[in-house]
């Protein structure tokens, strides 16, 4: 059975949408949580960060593989490296942040306004890193044409 469609150059362009969706939503809800703190919301956010971080791991690994298989493209070489670096930062940052969020909410249980604001600020910093990764990834496709047939 064929898992990938014929037009897809690999699993990476399919996988990358999961961390973008999970983590973006998680960051948005973390900001909402400043004003609207509920246990069910905290659980949902935790789940989104966990799935987001795990899918970021898969995206990074599949991205490394994709970058090594595309052949020589001197024009895109620096952009590939930059995208890869930001991808690694995203992975490390959200991996660490997910642990912090989980510890704060379920172990230390310090649900004060100050904690919620600080978590939101840290989440926004991660969103910036995620955005940088996505921007360079988008440029690789739409500016340099990587993975595009014809």
């Amino acid at each position: 059975m064929q898992l990938l469609p014929n037009w897809a150059p690999g699993i990476h362009p399919l996988m990358i949408h999961f961390p973008i969706a999970f983590l973006s939503l998680a960051v948005g809800l973390t900001i909402l949580e400043i004003f609207y703190s509920r246990e069910w919301l905290t659980k949902a956010i935790s789940g989104l960060y966990i799935f987001g971080a795990l899918s970021a791991v898969v995206s990074y690994i599949s991205g490394r593989s994709a970058a090594d298989s595309i052949g020589l493209n001197l024009k895109a070489e620096v952009a590939i490296g930059t995208h890869s670096d930001w991808g690694l930062y995203t992975l490390i940052y959200f991996g660490a942040f997910t642990i912090i969020y989980y510890l704060e909410k379920f172990i230390l249980k310090r649900n004060t306004l100050a904690v919620r604001v600080l978590l939101a600020v840290l989440a926004l910093a991660g969103f910036f890193i995620l955005g940088q990764t996505a921007e360079y990834g988008g440029r690789l496709v739409f500016e340099y044409g990587l993975g595009v047939k014809n």
Binding site: D68, G71, L72, V78, G81, T82, S84, D85
Partner: peptide, 17 residues
Amino acid sequence: TVTAAGTHYKGYLNEKM
């Protein structure tokens, strides 16, 4: 071919990494 892009270094033979 050898490329040096930032902190990334690659070696290619016949354009294959």
